[in-house]
Simulated scan of single mutants.
Amino acid sequence: ASDLVLSVELEQKASIYGFQPDSKRHQVLKISVLLPKCIATSRRILENGFSWTGSKSQIDGYKTYETNIDFEIRLMADLNIVGCNWIEIPAGKYFIRHMVTRGLTQQLKIQSRCQIELDVWAHDIISYPAEGDWQRIAPLRIMSYDIECAGRKGIFPEPEHDPVIQIASMIIRQGDKEEFIKTVFTLGTCANIAGVEVMACKTEHELLEKWADFVREVDPDIITGYNIQNFDFAYLLARAKHLNISTFPYLGRLKDVKTTARTTVLQSKQLGRRENKQINLEGRILFDLLL
């Protein structure tokens, strides 16, 4: 268990609650642990109090700070990384993952669909503030899409009953003036559309399977559309589950992580009770134009 605690440092800090520039600093212990999942356990032990092995005395609980912050945010704060800024991985400080073949067995070290996958110590990463030349935006690959369902007359489409008959997608690079891919996956035949590649599919199963393969092949950084978070993605995932398409819900960049639609509830006096779908797309950003 001692291997899970990397360091314990004594620092002078002030609580952010009611913070003022001249707020009194107090001595606090900064505890760094090996894995994010260790944070919750450490917090529980420290707040509930503990006793030493062989000792009858009980140590009172401590107040903890910043233990409910997502580890990704913690990493960004520690390394001064902000959203979409440029970072540098210095030469000689990283290890590129690749396929390794040993005898008759093949061990896959690559865990994602990224073009380059590497390991680096966090503190070897160099983060550049968004100033001067580092203000330019990377040529991010952006995909927008929309689906069409064959709904029953007078009834809003339901994934248990109503099929998806078309999915239209466009891909553009940030900074370009025109899209470089325009495609429509359609169930059955469809008239030709100027400048658009029409992919005719014989079955809905084939349509959904080919579109999922298309997303993984195009590998967009950002996926956008109108109401895609609360409708399109949730509908496609539910429809694929209904049709038993086991390969469909792997739309993020981590190969073994399923994309799911989880219902979250937000409640406030101003907006009342609102339900939203939370879609995980590891390695991609979902930008819904409606939200």
Rank of each mutant, 00 (worst) to 15 (best):
Q107C: 06
E209R: 11
I171Y: 05
S57P: 00
V184G: 01
I181G: 04
K63T: 11
S55Q: 13
R173W: 08
I96H: 07
L29I: 00
R44F: 08
Y235L: 10
I165P: 05
I16G: 02
V164D: 04
G18S: 05
S2E: 08
K258T: 07
F287Y: 10
P36Y: 08
F233T: 00
E131R: 13
Q267L: 05
C84M: 11
M170D: 10
S55E: 15
H242M: 15
A238F: 01
V257S: 06
Q107E: 15
Q270I: 06
G175V: 09
Q174I: 03
R113E: 02
R25W: 02
I245H: 06
T183K: 14
S268L: 01
S268G: 01
E178S: 13
D124F: 07
H205N: 15
E160I: 11
H98C: 07
K177P: 00
R173E: 07
N227K: 14
L108Y: 11
G175D: 04
S112P: 08
A1L: 15
G252S: 03
F231N: 04
E209Q: 14
T53R: 15
T259Y: 04
G272L: 04
V215C: 01
K255I: 14
S57D: 12
P159Q: 03
G61P: 05
H205E: 15
S32M: 09
S268H: 06
K153Q: 12
D176Y: 10
P21G: 02
P21H: 13
K210Y: 03
P220F: 01
D221P: 08
I222G: 02
D213L: 15
S127I: 11
F214R: 03
K210G: 00
Y65W: 14
V218Y: 11
F50A: 09
I172Q: 12
T53G: 03
I172F: 00
F214H: 13
Q135K: 15
N85H: 00
K13E: 09
T263D: 09
E179Q: 14
I126H: 06
V100W: 09
L281G: 06
R284Q: 00
T247C: 06
I59M: 12
L236Y: 03
